[in-house]
């Protein structure tokens, strides 16, 4: 008998297209000594079962805050002003801490940043995975069954079986990240959040790990939310992409739509500032200015101080989310002015 319990068999059938996760109007502030920081503002997202979503944006744009809130692990000074997080129809924000604990890792697990010390240095890798299995696996597992399960997981992520008896410091960065993925998969979660899963790794290992993650995701029918500042990572693995700026989702659509024809000025500038191997050789257009201070967010559209298309209206009124067809949403007054292709500043100089 194989130990692999797929999500398919647990939740009945896999129903592709069915909504797994729904974030509704999530707004969160951080309470600091200097004042309230509006870190997440009115974020709404939907994720289908078995699909993948990317959240991309600069450091501090609120993407990790959203991710941690999904597990209810937001910092202790975070204050959720409003919103709902519905996982299969259940609002996670209503649960008691004790009930929430049961959903962590069993339903939503997380692949932490490769640069992080996600592993406790004094315990063996296998024992740390076992902790999750002992807690969340539907039946009680014997030591032999646990080892078999971990061996399966390791095979899936390309680690040798005997690696489970080693300590974290004996692993290379890539191996550690593979083990992190194995641990995230251990209890067959419905949703995995991958927060900068490949950031500290070199590009070759990065590519391998992304490919494997994608393969595993399609094989096991899980949903994944990728979070990254690196749009190349998002472009490579996700079906849908949300572009975040200063705590808000400014553009959302299929990854294809966004990378082919970005409509929000920020997304457009972000793409223009990234080199491409296949496209024509050009100078990169840096994104001018700095992310705003979220203690006093800019009035109107939060991007207007840095936006080349900003008008009077942008500094006064918040732009609504506009559907420009096929589920491609953009929150901008002047999205029609955003040209096709890369930023002309770059084009001129190139």
């Amino acid at each position: 008998m194989t130990m692999r319990h797929d999500t398919q068999t647990e939740g009945g059938e896999v129903r592709p297209g069915e909504t797994l996760l729904e974030i509704k109007h999530l707004t969160m502030d951080y309470q600091t000594k200097e004042g309230r920081v509006s870190a997440v503002k009115d974020v709404s997202l939907t994720l289908q079962r078995g699909s993948s979503l990317g959240l991309v944006g600069e450091s501090g744009c609120g993407k990790t805050s959203v991710a941690l809130t999904l597990l209810r692990l937001q910092a202790s000074n975070a204050d959720i002003v409003e919103g709902e997080i519905l996982l299969g129809g259940l609002n996670l924000l209503d649960l008691s801490e004790e009930e929430m604990r049961k959903h962590r890792w069993a339903d939503i697990s997380m692949v932490f940043q490769g640069a992080m010390n996600a592993w406790n240095p004094v315990y063996r890798i296998g024992d740390q995975i076992r902790e999750a299995l002992d807690l969340h696996w539907p039946e009680k597992l014997t030591t032999a069954q646990v080892r078999q399960r971990i061996a399966e997981l390791f095979e899936l992520v390309g680690l040798p079986e005997e690696a489970m008896d080693r300590y974290p410091h004996e692993f290379s960065g890539g191996m550690r990240q593979r083990a992190t993925i194995a641990m995230a998969l251990s209890c067959n979660p419905q949703l995995i959040i991958a927060d900068e899963p490949t950031t500290a790794l070199d590009v070759i290992v990065q590519d391998q790990i992304l490919k494997e993650l994608k393969k595993i995701q399609t094989e096991l029918g899980m949903s994944i939310i990728y979070i990254s500042h690196d749009i190349a990572v998002i472009a490579q693995v996700t079906e849908h992409t949300g572009v975040m700026y200063a705590g808000k989702i400014v553009e959302y659509g299929s990854t294809e739509q966004i990378f082919h024809r970005p409509r929000h000025p920020y997304a457009w500038l972000l793409l223009s500032s990234t080199p491409s191997i296949t496209g024509p050789r050009r100078k990169l257009a840096p994104l001018e200015g700095e992310p705003p201070n979220l203690m006093v967010p800019p009035s109107g559209c939060r991007f207007h101080p840095r936006c080349p298309f900003a008008t009077e209206q942008c500094s006064n009124e918040e732009p609504p989310e506009t559907d420009i067809g096929d589920g491609h949403m953009v929150a901008c007054w002047n999205y029609e002015q955003v040209p096709v292709g890369i930023s002309e500043i770059a084009a001129e100089e190139g």
Binding site: L71, L73, M100, R101, K102, H103, R104, W105, A106, S109, M110, F112, M116, N117, A118, W119, N120, P121, E131, A132, L135, H136
Partner: peptide
């Protein structure tokens, strides 16, 4: 403050 404490929380440990 270590990251593995966050991991432990995310795993749902008491």
């Amino acid at each position: 403050r270590e990251d593995y404490i966050l991991t432990a929380r995310a795993k749902g440990l008491p």
